[in-house]
Design a protein around this nucleic acid. Structure first.
Lengths: 212, 212
DNA sequence: GTCTATAAGAGGATAGAC
DNA sequence: GTCTATCCTCTTATAGAC
């Protein structure tokens, strides 16, 4: 009798205990950091007992690692995949830049990055997990894009990978550091950096004059 | 009698207790992070008792903040101050770039940045202290440098500040992120990024052809 | 100011019933 | 698997002698 399903099935699938715990862990860890987060707090937020957490995860470190992995997989699903065939290269690069800073500057992405940096000093595999499932994928995609532009004869760049790194670096500027440091905004606006980065790349390497 | 000075004065000035404590705190905090560092460990490393630490610093947070402030002041004294009058702009930019990545990529600078990022989530004023005494000073100096190049008619940049941000961003690339995440090196080599960044800037904005 | 010894409490992890 | 109740270690901070 205890295993009986409810008479009425609802569309909203209830979260499994494991998912509840992971969600609670994410909120706690991202807000308070690893050390300042207590298993009691995670249990309370998840609505389960502490013992239940330990039935699903070996210990606090394991729970943290599971949360990071889970979060990275979800955050970077929606990668920007430019086609490289727009009529205006400038427009396409500009849209790509905006999409990337929106991904990179999302508050949750910043919080995740911050907590992974903090703990990677003690658990180096966390840095690897984060990088492989997030930034590395984005860089690979971006490198392929610039390679396509080069092959098409649109950009006279010497190395697609280097160009991708420089492009992302230019987009971040100082404002990214400021946000990691939990400061008020106050450097250059990210939108201005997108403008300037695209302008710089095109002036340096564009083969077809397409300035309007 | 207990206050008597030693009969022979040595050239090596002994560190005051306060300085001993700060040095020990730096080593512990940078290696183990804020939470994992214990006051016992700091006391042991400094060669004093815990009570002595509390005689000099109100509590653990205060000690951490004092260490950060102290460290920032020392780390960023040796700022690169380019003159903007070298015969070859390319050579000067290249040297500047190398100097900056040497500063930015110093292991202790990385460790300091990491621990400040981690704790700035709880103590926002730490981020401010770090930024003002370090990166902000470097950016101001770099902005002034690019402004000089612009005024001299060497670079046709629209905005010195934006250019400074992009230049630093290009220098960092992905490798900086990899180091913060405590990963093995493996992206683009920083030296290649310096080359590429200088090349890009010059191609985009140089007014006098000086390619050799 | 500096020490030894200790108070006081937090928090990770588990035992045992259901 | 899940809960309640508890153990036990580790760590911050202080009391009190010198």
């Amino acid at each position: 009798m205890r295993e009986q399903k409810p008479a009425v099935e609802f569309d909203t699938v209830p979260l499994s205990k494991r998912e509840q715990i992971l969600a609670a862990a994410r909120e706690e860890f991202l807000e308070y950091g690893y050390a300042a987060t207590t298993m009691d707090a995670v249990a309370a937020r998840a609505g389960v007992s502490k013992a239940t957490i330990y039935a699903h995860f070996e210990n606090k470190q394991t729970l943290f690692g599971a949360m990071i992995t889970n979060r990275c997989e979800q955050s970077f699903d929606k990668l920007p995949v430019p086609r490289g065939d727009a009529r205006s290269l400038r427009t396409e690069l500009h849209a790509l830049g905006l999409m990337m800073i929106r991904l990179i500057y999302a508050p949750e992405a910043i919080a995740l990055y911050r907590v992974v940096i903090a703990e990677s000093a003690r658990q180096p595999e966390l840095g690897e997990i984060f990088h492989v499932s997030g930034p590395a994928r984005a860089m690979a995609s971006l490198t392929a894009y610039f390679q396509k532009l080069k092959d098409k004869g649109l950009l006279a760049i010497p190395d697609a990978r280097l160009t991708a790194e420089m492009f992302v670096g230019m987009l971040k500027g100082q404002d990214y550091m400021r946000r990691l440091l939990n400061m008020e905004e106050g450097g250059c606006r990210p939108e201005d950096l997108v403008e300037a980065a695209v302008e710089t790349l095109l002036r340096a390497y564009a083969l077809q004059a397409e300035e309007v």
